[in-house]
């Protein structure tokens, strides 16, 4: 397992993409730190960029990596190694690379210009979202034989969770404005990892007062120990289920 991971990581680190992504993250963080002195404003801006960029990159990169590495996978499957290990080493290599890019890219400016706990939460959410979307991308990859199709499915996951889902929630809230919808919206948030990440972060930033009664309700929920536990558990579930399903498919896949 560790040997496989070593070779997968070696291959990934050598690719230009890993370096470009890290540099891009550094540039984003540095430029946002330059604009404002207020740490919570910095966090908020970083959050907004991260919620768009990180899932997109994770989804596209994981899919292309799976198909570019198909030769390596096939080679390994003829060797005395477990199928599970072949799959896990690929996933771990992608996740480690994506997480490292976020930690280094956002971490260096933080060390230089200071950070507080909110920024650490931000890093955590970035890593969690990378895992979620890498997992969805691997799922799309093992279910198709065609690279273009897999990238299409991965991208539609991203569009769905970043854009369409929010539109759907807004429409729902608007249509049923006369009813108390706090609990419903809370439930809906759990079904979208991007929203979940956003809410967890916003609740740390003391700007929930701007969000009216629902904001207060959310603050009440996500501020409590139970809320934190439940939302982290839900995030963990989002990180695990696509990878779990993808692994089951991979173990029965023909190469």
């Amino acid at each position: 397992m560790f040997k496989l991971l070593k070779y997968s990581l070696y291959d990934i680190v050598k690719s230009r993409f890993a370096i470009l992504y890290t540099i891009f993250m550094i540039l984003v963080a540095v430029s946002i730190y330059q604009v404002s002195e207020d740490m919570s404003k910095v966090s908020l801006s970083l959050l907004n960029i991260m919620l768009m960029i990180v899932p997109l990159i994770a989804a596209v990169f994981a899919t292309t990596h799976f198909f570019n590495n198909l030769e390596f996978t096939e080679l390994m499957l003829a060797q005395p190694v477990k199928r599970r290990d072949v799959f896990l080493s690929q996933v771990l290599a992608v996740v480690i690379m994506l997480s490292a890019a976020i930690v280094i890219g956002f971490g260096i400016p933080m060390i230089l210009w200071g950070a507080d706990s909110t920024v650490l939460t931000l890093l955590g959410i970035g890593i969690a979202l990378s895992v979620v979307f890498a997992g969805l991308a691997f799922l799309a990859s093992v279910l198709t034989r065609d690279k273009a199709k897999a990238i299409g499915i991965s991208l539609s996951f991203w569009i769905y969770f970043s854009l369409i889902y929010d539109g759907f929630v807004l429409y729902l809230i608007y249509s049923f404005a006369d009813y108390p919808l706090e609990k419903t919206t809370l439930g809906l948030v759990f079904f979208n990892p991007v929203d979940l990440g956003r809410i967890i972060m916003l609740m740390q930033l003391d700007i929930s007062a701007l969000m009216g009664y629902t904001g207060a309700f959310f603050q009440n929920f996500f501020g409590s120990a139970k809320g934190i536990l439940l939302s982290s558990a839900m995030m963990l579930l989002w990180m695990l289920w696509p990878l779990g399903v993808a692994m089951r498919v991979f173990r029965k896949k023909d190469f």
Binding site: D11, K14, S15, E71, F72, L75, A78, P80
Partner: peptide, 16 residues
């Protein structure tokens, strides 16, 4: 599989 030496029809190997 450690007892099998396999030569594929088309050898596909990582590029780098």
């Amino acid at each position: 599989r450690s007892n099998i030496g396999y030569m594929p029809q088309i050898g596909r190997y990582p590029d780098n």
